[in-house]
Simulated assay, not measured.
Amino acid sequence: MEIFNQLINIVDQNPESILVIRQQTEQRLPSHQHDKAQLLLVYGGIAYLQTNEKDFYIPSNHYIWIPKNYPHNLMFNTQDLYIINLYFPSDGVSGFYDELGIYPVSKLLSEMLSFSEKWQGNYYKGSWEFEFLTTLRNVLSKENLKKFSIQLPTTDDQRLNAIIDHVRNRLREDLSLDTIAQQFGMSVRSLTRLFQTKLHITFIQYLKMLRIIRAMELIKDTDLNITEIAYEVGYSNISAFSNNFQQLTNMRPSEFKLK
């Protein structure tokens, strides 16, 4: 809790500053929020951001915008991950900045981050660094980039979480609604209703996202080739795997591997 309190104090102790932190500060902290909005950039792996409603997956070379006072906690499973945190004071911006969203790092944003790569700490109004970082933030809403769309709804329903854990551990198997319903002593209709009522998503949609998330992890964390990864997450058709991967991530598996 001491580290947790220190982080909140560091972020919000200077309400008017823009704060730059280039380290994995927020890993595995309890759910928390800041008076400042947060721009969190991820390189070299996958970060996991949990909120009260959903789990968000942030792949390498992407960023997530977290509005001010938005409860969240961050997790990741690799030490090779490089994270940049920029915390912005509230100064009347709205629209794009009122919503949590994940987007790819554009060439322009990458160049601006490269220019400021040695900056660390607080920057105040009146300094050219403050103006530069404010411009960087303002660029985000002008780029009209497509949101990264993998986000898993969560539930407190113990029965459904047991089913999800079962599915998560057997992704390479031929999973079907009929099979899972039978294994848990339920009718297909009851299982379908459970997913739609508690998660507002179908079983097939949830399974597809679980498989693509696992594929993303394997691409970054192993030396398996794309065909091996497709089979590992339950696809016998490589074309179907590639198409589903692109549908959810806006890129082909081979492109993701290079990020």
Rank of each mutant, 00 (worst) to 15 (best):
T78R: 06
H34M: 04
T222M: 07
S114T: 11
F130D: 05
K68I: 05
T78H: 06
G121R: 07
I213L: 15
K125L: 09
R172P: 02
I229E: 09
D156R: 11
P104G: 10
R172K: 12
R211N: 06
L81Y: 01
I3F: 12
H166Y: 15
G92L: 04
N225W: 06
L210K: 02
L258F: 10
K257L: 08
L177N: 10
K118I: 12
M112T: 05
T249W: 09
I213M: 11
L133K: 01
V105N: 15
N161P: 06
Y48D: 12
V105L: 15
D174I: 03
S114D: 14
E16G: 07
K220L: 12
M216Q: 10
S127E: 15
N169E: 13
V105W: 14
N85Y: 01
T249I: 09
G121H: 07
A240D: 14
D178R: 08
D221T: 10
Q196F: 07
D157N: 14
V188P: 01
Y103K: 13
Y63A: 00
G95I: 03
M1N: 13
F245P: 00
D35P: 00
I238N: 13
I204P: 04
Y123I: 00
S60E: 05
L194E: 09
K107I: 14
L133F: 14
L113H: 14
L145W: 08
L136M: 15
P89M: 04
R170F: 05
R214N: 14
S94Y: 07
L74C: 04
R168S: 11
S106C: 14
T179W: 12
D80T: 08
T155H: 00
V20G: 04
I8F: 11
I238W: 12
E26Y: 02
V167H: 02
L40W: 00
I201F: 04
F256C: 02
G45M: 03
Q50R: 13
V167P: 02
L175M: 06
Q33W: 01
I21D: 00
T25F: 10
I83S: 00
A181V: 03
F256G: 01
R137Q: 15
Q23A: 07
T179S: 13
S94E: 11
A215S: 11
R214K: 15
M209N: 10
F4V: 11
R28M: 04
N225C: 06
I102V: 14
I46N: 10
Q196H: 11
I180R: 05
S176R: 07
S176C: 06
L140T: 13
R22Y: 08
Q158D: 15
I201V: 07
K198W: 03
L191N: 00
Q6F: 14
H62P: 05
R22C: 06
D157S: 09
W128S: 13
M112F: 11
K68V: 11
L19M: 05
S242N: 13
Q183Y: 08
T155Y: 01
Y123A: 01
N14F: 13
Q79G: 09
N69R: 13
D55W: 06
W119T: 13
L224N: 08
Y63M: 02
I201S: 04
T197W: 04
Y70L: 08
E232A: 12
N138R: 15
S110M: 04
R137K: 15
T135V: 12
D98F: 06
F184R: 08
